[in-house]
Each structure stands twice: as structure tokens, then as C-alpha cells.
Amino acid sequence: MDSVVIVRTGTANLASVVGAMGRLGARTIVTSEARLILDADRLVLPGVGTLGAAMEELRQRNLVKALQQRLTDGRPALAICLGLQMLLTGSEESPGVSALGIANGAATRFSNDVRVPHLGWSRISPPPLTDEPEAFAYFAHSYRVTEPPPGWSASWCEHGGRFVAAMWNGATLACQFHPELSGAWGARMLSRWFAGEGMLDLDAAVKGVA
């Protein structure tokens, strides 16, 4: 299969993800249909905006159960930016809103002694799916996770203290940064993900750092 299913979450600008996948030669299917999401061999969960608004979209489109099922069935999935936070139980950004609850943790806001939003290119280590010791990735967010949820491995970034740049568990990789906007390195990471490599490399990379 050479296709990637991208979940339409309503507020996400999908053109960047679609463009990046297209440059890798992937056939992209943008959908909010539960059946296509459940059938997807490779799933991308993008997201911008607030967690509350994004979860409301998923609820209105009746996608919460389908995503919970598809994201834990052992097949490759990639969550991007707010997509990472949608995997958690919730976020300080939208109190009282339940996220998908696939990973046990919550996002909190950056402290005010650094620029918020965290916008721009920051060093991450170890970069997921690639064998370089570090890379620069593009971020655009105000909330973050400071510890990986139990059972998840992490790649790290620094902005007023360290936070989770990416985390992975089984075949699900969640990036707080935007690989689709992270230049040549981001394209390499997506290409590895698309080729289905790398979950083992990831764990090896982390052991090297720990």
C-alpha cells in the first residue's frame, strides 16, 4: 500500500501534511469517515488550534471510538502537534475536556519566562526515526508534556526546561513538532515513517542516550 489516510479534524491546515506526503510519492486520502480511518494501514492525525475545539470536532464527526481503536491496533500512526495532545487524557488549555486517553498524561502551558507560543526551530534529541544524534525541528505550540506517559519513550527539546518533542509506543509516533515543516530533516523522518522502518531504531536511539 502506498497510501496515507489523514484525519480531517476541521481546524487543521492539511495542505502542508498533504504536500509533504505527496513529495514522498504517497497517495493521500483526507477523510473524516470512521470506516476509512479504521481501515488505514498508515494513519496521520494532524491538528492545530485548541484541544477543546479539536475534540469537539471529533465528537461531532463521531470519530472518538474509531480513533481510540485504530490508534491502539498495532498499525503505524503518526500524530502531529495538537495530534500528540489529543492522545493524552487532557490539557490545561481546555479544562474539563477529555482527550482520546490513549496515553496517560496531560499537557501544561509553557512558563511565562520564555516566549510563548514556542514558535520556530529548536534542537531535539534523539530525533525520531533517523540515526543522527540531534536535529532541528519546527515547533508552533503553547502547551507541552514534560514527562512521557507511562510506557512511552521520548525525544526531548528545551524551552524553559525540557519537554517531550516526540513520543512513541508500539507503532504510534507522536510529534509535538511539525515534521512536514521541518525542512530536509523532516522529510527524511517522514520518509522513514512512510517506508515503515524505524520503530526499533527509535528504541535503540533512546538507549544510546539514557
Binding site: 488550534g49 485548541t50 503553547s142
Partner: peptide, 8 residues
């Protein structure tokens, strides 16, 4: 900001 997030 409500619709797309402040980062946008």
C-alpha cells in the same frame, strides 16, 4: 485565535 490557535 479561538478557531486556529494563537500560534497561527
Amino acid at each position: 485565535a479561538m478557531q486556529f490557535g494563537s500560534q497561527c
